[in-house]
Design a binder for these strands. Structure first.
Lengths: 344, 344
DNA sequence: CTGTTAGCGCATTCAC
DNA sequence: GTGAATGCGCTAACAG
């Protein structure tokens, strides 16, 4: 049988509630009794029963993390950072993957609520705002991450998709490229729209025309990337640079470029969105827009803990409930260089 | 305020204990009352309070997952598979990363226990058997994964490191290579030892001599891999094939080979341990030993749930407490080919 | 500052 | 089969 608070109280010769207060850092406790109780707890190897504590106090010290999958580099980075940071603040994280299914997502959200999580970070479908708003009303903290959720009353932390795409495109244009290809996500996704907007705006800012022949947008899949890359090459558009802004598609784009013996950066300058080991190690290393997954997670956890700190304060929530953008950062590597002028 | 069991019981016109039994699938309940209660629960949108349930029943429907990090491809694969499978059985998983620190690991294990997890999967340091054995004694399930733990009384699920390395090496030898290099982990790690043993045994089986000049073993780091690759190339040993058996080191080996313009497979046939997207997309795609991370996770979760099913049955635990090996699988890709005979 | 009292919501005796 | 009673271990009023 394990040591209960009662045993600690007995050992220390105080009441059970005094023991509770002493161990939970209540200010209304004398220094002596605190050290006394702590001594007993230490000696007996007391460990709090979180289930009991949660039942009574409505604070589980658990937070939920809901995401599509763990394969995506940004996602598992976020999971790891979230876990580490939460643990350092005394919270454990329940991890849930949805496979991108909104129904599964709702189910998981409910299950997390059953477990009494104090808050939830959600990289979601954006389709369960009603559910998460209900949680907020019940005093559970919520933060949307990476993907915004229409009608959600919770704070949202997003990557700077548009700015990042703008910078990458301007970087290519700045090197002298005038025919810059674009492979990106569908307009139905926020990030797909934003990155495309950044690309377009950069072209405009640099005085370059937007040519639909240079642009292919599609689903977040490797196959799409491969097809798109082949298609762009086949079009013979005079493209000298390519911005691959659809993360999953990159896995299809790279092998095609290699197989077609496209020399990088000489035949084609290449930039991608979202950094990952693959791109660092590629030959040559690939210039990327680092979306700041770690920083996004840090901020999201901060916002979550802030809510948890003042759970029943609607004013606090209103104050926090805005959209934050974590700045993107261009990392220049060898895959981008000025266009090679054939002949002169 | 959320709906409690009491409200459901009231609505159904039965006692609270009958409601509890009805919703928990107790056999001693008439069919009618069951459907009646389920109807009320449905209607009111009842959701069980897991904290209360855990406090009373000692079953939290939570399991812990402890691992070094989430960056390693095998690790996040295991995390994702574990989560999905656990969820399908009604369990949620608390994810913890240790950063490889045994003290942090112990701390996390204790914290998981505080939360009353029904069981824990641990990819651990192997140094906390005393702690986990204590958990077992308290009726918490434990399964060691990927890394064995000396003195642990819990079941262990391991990858077939030796067999995998044996197969990869024999594959290279079978292609006609006689000078096969090896870059692997330190002998202090189980997997480092096992894979090296598999390599050695395969050489022996193929009648090839073991040449220390062809072998470099070191830590699980990218830098080590880069250094080792450079060193092996510099030694001019007549090496025509390389088996990179240290997963993290692969991230250092690949760029060095590319930078040194080593043509694969013509100048050097290459095989690696542990599959991952990077290796599928590499140019050329790299032959690997797939360690079966998904299958390892599936089996580990099964073993955990089996223990949870019969928590106080020492006979059951004794029966399960053995070491399981999930078979490795060689995936041949374009990076391995017969040695090119220069001239004739 | 400390002790007493009263549950949190549920699962499980024990009666019937 | 069902209901009444009893805590699981803890925290949060409420007194003092």
């Amino acid at each position: 049988m394990s040591i209960t608070l009662r045993a600690v109280a007995q050992d220390a010769g105080v009441s059970i509630s005094t023991a509770s207060r002493a161990l939970n850092g209540s200010p209304l406790i004398s220094h002596e009794t605190r050290t006394l109780v702590e001594g007993s707890a230490q000696k007996l190897g007391y460990r709090p029963n979180r289930a009991a504590s949660a039942l009574r106090s409505k604070r589980s010290r658990l937070i939920g993390l809901v995401m599509n999958n763990l394969v995506n580099h940004s996602f598992h980075t976020i999971a790891e950072v979230t876990q580490r940071k939460a643990a350092s603040e005394g919270y454990q994280v329940i991890l849930s993957t949805t496979g991108g299914d909104p129904a599964a997502e709702q189910d998981l959200l409910r299950t997390l609520s059953d477990h009494g999580v104090d808050g939830t970070l959600i990289i979601g479908s954006g389709q369960n705002a009603a559910t998460t708003n209900g949680f907020l009303a019940d005093g559970m903290a919520v933060v949307n991450v990476i993907r915004s959720s229409r009608d959600s009353l919770a704070p949202t932390v997003l990557a700077a998709d548009r700015d990042g795409a703008f910078e990458a495109t301007r970087h290519l244009a700045g090197l002298g490229h005038r025919r810059i290809g674009y492979i990106g996500g569908e307009p139905t996704s926020d990030s797909g729209r934003e990155r495309h907007a950044g690309y377009s705006e950069a072209l405009e800012a640099e005085g370059l025309a937007y040519d639909p022949d240079l642009v292919i947008r599609g689903p977040f899949t490797q196959d799409f990337g491969a097809d798109a890359a082949r298609e762009l090459l086949a079009r013979r558009t005079g493209m000298t640079a390519l911005f691959a802004a659809n993360h999953e598609a990159v896995f299809g784009v790279l092998p095609v470029l290699a197989a077609e013996q496209v020399r990088i950066p000489d035949d084609l300058a290449l930039a991608c969105f979202e950094d990952m080991p693959l791109l660092q190690m590629w030959h040559p290393p690939v210039t990327v827009v680092d979306n700041g997954a770690s920083e996004i997670a840090e901020l999201a956890v901060d916002l979550l803990l802030n809510q948890i700190g003042a759970p029943t304060d609607p004013e606090n929530l209103r104050r926090l409930a805005r959209t934050y953008r974590v700045g993107a950062r261009l990392i220049e590597r060898a895959s981008t260089a000025p266009p090679v002028t054939r002949k002169s």
